[in-house]
Amino acid sequence: MYNALVSHRPKVVVIGGGTGLPVILKNLKDKHVDITAVVTVADDGGSSGIIRDYINVVPPGDIRNVIAALSELPETELELFQYRFDSKDSFFAGHAIGNLIIAALSEMEGGIFDAVQYLSQSMRVNGNIYPAANEPLELHAEFTDGSQLRGESEITAADKQIKRVWVTTRNNDGEPEAVQEVVDAILNADQIVLGPGSLFTSILPNLMIKNVGEAILESSADVVYICNIMTQKGETDNFTEADHVRVLNEHLGRNFVNTVLVNNKKVPEEYMDYQKWNEISQPVKHDFQGLRDMGCRVVSADFLELKERGAFHNGQEVADELINLIGRPNDY
């Protein structure tokens, strides 16, 4: 593996998916830490979903973005890996070159895990990238009205309040399971980071893999949740920070989140383009006491970055705080 691991570097495991995960990883890459990214494999949208419908591979989009974030290749080579065809061709249109490479390697190596390890070496990845499972998973949700749906895009589009989520293998031929490397990384971690990302469709799908959830509960690492800045339409409307953590705790059956990073910088209403960012609902409401009641240490700071008329996490500020937290006693 490029940039060989040094035993005394703190071990940080970041778990999630979506667009938020690469932002944090890119800024952690240059810190003196041993990074392992555990990436969701339950996505079913966009180019990733189309590829999965044609060939039975894990949707590669989130993995592609994480590889690019941790790669030490020159920018021009990363641009080629990330290039998305704008051709009018019915097959190539909208596909990213990296997605096609990952899909091809998955067939050649007999699974996504070995494919990603091979590609990580080729692309000089600084750290480890582990798909949460070695096969495509399907996300299921039960809503508060008792109805159920499967598939990430279907669940989000339903625009109903979600009660719980779980994952199954795509063929329902057994219980989803992470490879041993994922479990070992979690058990040996000094810090486990959840998010930022969609609560029900990017973070929880990983935790709902039984041996992943069990490893997190067994681990002695500080579990840090990076709370989203904005609620997500159809998933977390009207949620407070405490609501996000409550859902995480309920899914694993006990209070396991130790530390929560909360943005305290006000999002300017006049800046936001709600038509462009149509998934965004409103700023997540503060509930510091609710977090403390669940045993969480609250770190409140300006983690906001405004760009493209939207509100995002400032990756550098978040990464700096994660490093500050390593080795600091829990002062709940």
Rank of each mutant, 00 (worst) to 15 (best):
Y2F: 15
G46K: 07
A133L: 07
T76G: 06
K276N: 01
I186D: 07
Y2R: 14
A157L: 08
N27I: 00
H244V: 10
D53G: 09
I323F: 06
D114V: 09
E181R: 12
T169N: 14
Q316G: 10
G98V: 14
E250V: 01
D53S: 15
T240L: 03
L149N: 06
A157M: 07
N258H: 09
I15A: 02
E152Q: 15
M230R: 10
Q82A: 13
A132G: 02
E308A: 13
P74M: 06
Q289F: 01
E175C: 08
N255R: 07
V41R: 03
K26P: 00
L28M: 12
E138W: 01
A115S: 13
H95A: 11
G213C: 08
G17E: 01
E269G: 01
V179T: 11
L119I: 13
A42G: 08
S219N: 08
E241G: 09
Q117L: 13
N324E: 04
P329Q: 04
M123A: 05
G127V: 07
F92Q: 15
S147A: 12
M294K: 10
Q82R: 14
D44P: 05
G45V: 11
A42Q: 06
V13G: 06
R254N: 03
N128L: 09
N172V: 11
D184S: 15
S220T: 14
G111I: 14
G16I: 10
I101P: 03
L105V: 11
W277E: 02
L80T: 14
N211H: 09
T168E: 11
A96W: 09
K88P: 05
L322T: 06
N264P: 02
S122W: 00
V66T: 12
G111S: 13
M1I: 12
N314C: 07
P131M: 04
R246D: 01
F312N: 12
M208V: 12
A133G: 11
A37F: 03
E177Y: 03
F256I: 15
V247P: 00
D114L: 13
V13R: 05
E77D: 13
V260S: 02
